[in-house]
């Protein structure tokens, strides 16, 4: 899998490059700012662009804007956005319209090697990745009077992993249950929340995100 890595801190960029190379990825381009990133992605057509949110030129959300531009211009290229902090609002901007091939993670997740590599693969294959921290923000509220209140503890855990973009198989491994059990949980969750069942993982993320966000507005 071919990657372009955009990170303005040289130290971190070198660490990241070394990390993904050791994990078997090919780094075809490195960028130190948002414009450099868009240019290199357009030139190399990687499978995934790994993007730091805060980068030059303005050192605010340039990376995020570049990621959105890549999504718009080159929808086939996966984008994994890394940030020192994650906000549900930014997740919304990145994933709401089309979560296929998009990931949004806290930067420090790179030290959890297996999860990070898994996230890269999933994004490269058109899946979705959402940081557990964002999911916690979305779920960590009182839920009286909503479908969430009717979920069992296990179903809640399953919902959180779905929102993170995990597949049924991944959820089964995480919860140490059979794939069939997960399927049952998922079925029940969609029923209780009144959502149309979605086969594709990234569409599931969209559905769950939309449900959780609209719960806020309601």
């Amino acid at each position: 899998m071919r990657l372009v890595i955009a990170e303005d801190s040289l130290l971190l960029r070198e660490g990241l490059v070394r990390l993904v190379r050791e994990a078997g990825f090919e780094v075809v381009g490195e960028a130190g700012d948002a414009e450099d990133l868009v240019r290199k992605v357009a030139a190399h057509k990687p499978d995934v662009a790994v993007v730091d949110v805060r980068m030059p030129p303005t050192n605010t959300d340039d990376g995020l804007r570049a990621a959105l531009e890549i999504r718009r211009r080159m929808p086939d290229i996966g984008v994994l956005v890394l940030s020192e902090f994650v906000e549900q609002g930014y997740a919304h901007e990145l994933l709401m319209n089309n979560a296929a091939g998009v990931g949004y993670l806290l930067k420090q997740r790179v030290t959890e090697l297996e999860r990070f590599v898994d996230a890269l693969r999933r994004v490269g294959e058109g899946g979705s990745v959402l940081d557990p921290e964002v999911v916690t923000q979305l779920l960590g509220r009182r839920s009286e009077g909503t479908g969430l209140a009717e979920l069992t503890e296990r179903e809640r855990e399953t919902l959180a992993l779905m929102a993170e973009g995990r597949s049924n198989r991944g959820i089964a491994e995480d919860l140490v249950v059979t794939g069939r059990t997960v399927e049952t949980h998922v079925h029940n969750i969609f029923g209780k929340l009144g959502l149309e069942p979605e086969a594709r993982d990234h569409r599931r993320v969209n559905a769950v995100l939309r449900y959780l966000t609209e719960r806020e507005a309601g």
Partner: peptide, 10 residues
């Protein structure tokens, strides 16, 4: 800190 964490991971 993240860079250090990455080094520790290595």
């Amino acid at each position: 800190f993240v860079a250090v964490a990455l080094s520790v991971r290595f």
